[in-house]
Nucleic acid binder design. Structure first.
Lengths: 337, 337
DNA sequence: TTGTATGCGTTATCAC
DNA sequence: GTGATAACGCATACAA
């Protein structure tokens, strides 16, 4: 009945003694591809079980080059899609034995401290799923040589030092644009998100290009400085307030669902108009709310699970060829457009 | 121009040499209450700056009893309130120099592995903001002596080994019940969340008690196995489908907003009734959506920021008296009830 | 105020 | 297949 008397006192040495082997054999027993006999592993594992031993990952991180820890930097908690992404990513990472360090990047000035913070924990990779990561920040981060892998998830980046895993915004936006045109809408308003210098989306540009090609002019566009339904509702109101008839858009195409949900609220409750009869709305992401009978939002769904799967593959791959990858999602047609 | 040639190669020793002091003086310069001369600190800091030195927290965690890392266990990503809580908690923790390890507890069986996972990283505390933490799990966790602090956040627990930081559900629910009664509602339906053996909410029980006291019978109650608006909508439909007039409730009181949002969708779009004229709805949490003009949800707002502030205080306090604490929030009256 | 040994628990590398 | 040596980078305790 020898019970550990201190916090977490049971170490690999204790197990080694109990199992009658060396500390290094204990170590081998806990890694899957080690050269160890089945008998030794058996002895070690039962001794470990009895003592309640579990390897210490802090020590492991210190002694090896891997920490099995990944930093996840998020900066816009107002966007409901972030919850979906976090669920998906943590699930995929945990499936591969990777832990997640969640860093709330409070504002743009906090980005560099947040990156440093991550590097202090020796993370194997840093995943960015926010918006405030412009070229300056990324360059500074990489100059410090602190990140084995810097991954921009669900957002395109042309920065050569980062790995971008995202949906192909051009294909997606073209599909949206063609759908909108086919449905007969002719007076679009494009609602874009915050303007970021880098790691941005090609959605606004692509939509404008398609429209220009087809009709010879660019669509009206507004920008919302945060992916926040409430703020989006406010900006939509400021933009459309007082306009009537053909002066109003007949469709609002939004950079993502967070913006679209706000737009719908404004159309219905502040302008007193109908969706889609008076103004149709298109989103992007397919957040859970988009499917609610109230919104019935037509939107573009990213293959998040597949993207997360590729992400963990990238984390395991050693080579650093160009690992950028674009995915294709699907347009989910509901009632809003 | 001596630049580190390897990953993260710059260590306290390098800084010590550059600054002409010992390694231990470098160490002191980086902790705020150390006994060190201003001149030494100055020298160290500028040398550190020049070399790009930052302390390694893995090594620090290994050598000391603190890791400055806190595990956050979450298991219901369908509940939009979780996003608010994560934002609030990570913000508060980071303000105190604490990092967050986000652990997605996939299902009930995964809870113990998740707890072990956290302990492997030597976390200073484990915060539970999910639902699947019953007594068995908590007891097992504590028996292992692996957690300095086990905190149940936004949920009451009577387990003596845990610290519970939550809103006072009895006060809150009584306020809700009295409001509902004062507004003249007499046929309530209570929509509760998943039944957890421990760490549960006293909301359902309290509401039933108040109602019993006042009217001599307990209100009709249904349980939704997940805090998910979509599932809640479905269960509300199954419960109310086909009922008419006085056979329908005149108010639906929900354990939280996730359930309330779903209930509203069903009332309006599947039953074709009005909120609040035909059926009123009350929620709990005041998620961002609750304020949208579509829902206009009457709900109870928890003082999350204050609660998070107390949480970080608890983390810093060394004594282990009973640190449980209950907070009082406020009823936010909107249009839904 | 500052410098010195020693240990934290594990892993890389080499020897057997 | 297994055991041994030397780090990993920092903190504690104590000596100067």
């Amino acid at each position: 009945m020898s019970k550990p008397d201190r916090f977490d006192s049971v170490t690999a040495d204790d197990v080694a003694i109990a199992a009658g082997v060396s500390r290094w054999t204990v170590n081998r027993a806990f890694k899957k591809d080690a050269s160890i006999s089945a008998k030794s592993r058996e002895k070690v594992m039962s001794a470990a079980q009895a003592l309640g031993y579990i390897p210490d990952l802090s020590a492991s991180a210190l002694a090896s080059t891997r920490s099995n820890l990944v930093a996840l930097l998020v900066d816009d908690f107002a966007n409901p899609h972030k919850l979906v992404m976090m669920d998906c990513l943590t699930r995929a990472l945990r499936g591969r034995g990777l832990d997640t360090l969640l860093v709330n990047t409070l504002d743009r000035e906090d980005t560099t401290p947040a990156l440093i913070n991550a590097s202090q924990r020796r993370v194997d990779a840093t995943i960015l799923i926010g918006i405030q990561f412009d070229d300056d920040v990324l360059a500074a981060a990489h100059r410090a040589h602190r990140f084995k892998k810097l991954i921009i998830f669900a957002r395109t980046s042309r920065n050569p030092d980062t790995i971008s895993i995202a949906v192909d915004d051009e294909i997606a936006t073209k599909e949206i644009a063609h759908y909108v045109i086919a449905k007969g809408y002719r007076r679009p308003l494009y609602v874009a998100g915050p303007n970021t210098a880098s790691a941005h989306l090609l959605r606004k540009e692509t939509f404008a290009l398609v429209w220009q090609d087809r009709f010879g002019h660019v669509p009206e566009t507004v920008s919302v400085p945060r992916y926040d339904p409430i703020l989006s509702a406010e900006i939509a109101f400021r933009t459309l307030h007082g306009r009537k008839g053909a002066d109003l858009p007949d469709v609002i195409v939004c950079e993502n669902d967070a913006l679209a949900l706000g737009a719908i609220d404004t159309i219905r409750y502040r302008l007193g108009l109908r969706v889609p009869q008076d103004i149709a709305v298109v989103g992007f992401d397919d957040v859970p709310q988009a499917a609610s009978p109230h919104y019935q939002l037509t939107t573009y769904r990213q293959p998040l699970a597949e993207m997360a799967g590729y992400l963990v593959d990238v984390l395991e791959s050693a080579d650093s060829r160009n690992l950028d990858r674009k995915f294709t999602g699907e347009l989910v047609i509901r009632h809003s457009a």
